[in-house]
């Protein structure tokens, strides 16, 4: 069972004052919360990496939580920020890894849920951008293959992915 808002807030308040025991419990609970949060947003094999990344960011920026404000929206904002950053990194540096991505083969419930969540966001993107992201980032096609499949030039596929990811970043800033 994941901790509730008052528990998170109390633990965070203690962690800000240097209470190590509270911090340990808090980080564990935040880890569980983040795991659930990312379950619908990234392929399963990337979750632990992303959770660790957010835990580090959470810890580094713990001074930015204001005890007079709710804890979970603050945590969600950090998680979203790191998620978008993760997507950008994947786009820029890990295209090879994505092409060998086995997430599609792991057709378990988590993957299905991740797709459902992404599909919901994709509905808000122009069709060409959504298609380009889907083919390259999710289906693992190369830029050239995606270009051949869609009839777009390679440059246009890249532009559509870039703009689409940018739009996604804006969308997740808004209240879902």
């Amino acid at each position: 069972m994941v901790a509730d808002e008052p528990t998170f807030a109390r633990l965070m308040g203690s962690a800000q004052t240097g209470d190590k025991a509270a911090c340990n419990v808090l980080l564990s609970e935040v880890g569980v919360w983040l795991e659930r949060y990312f379950r619908r947003r990234v392929p399963p094999h990337q979750i632990d990496d992303l959770v660790q990344e957010v835990l580090i960011a959470f810890y580094t920026k713990r001074g930015t939580w204001d005890p007079s404000r709710p804890f979970l929206p603050w945590l969600a904002a950090i998680a979203r920020y790191r998620w978008i950053d993760h997507l950008r990194k994947v786009y820029k540096h890990d295209s090879k890894e994505l092409m060998e991505d086995d997430a599609i083969e792991d057709s378990d419930e988590e993957v299905v849920m991740a797709r459902v969540s992404l599909d919901r966001l994709f509905l808000k993107l122009p069709e060409k951008q959504a298609t380009a992201i889907e083919l390259v980032k999710i289906d693992g096609l190369s830029i050239r293959e995606a270009a051949e499949k869609t009839g777009q030039s390679e440059s246009l596929v890249k532009v559509n992915i870039h703009r689409g990811l940018k739009k996604l970043a804006t969308l997740v800033e808004e209240v879902e």
Partner: peptide
Amino acid sequence: LIAALTEDLTPV
């Protein structure tokens, strides 16, 4: 990671 972060914790 959690153990390492906890170990380094200081008031912020």
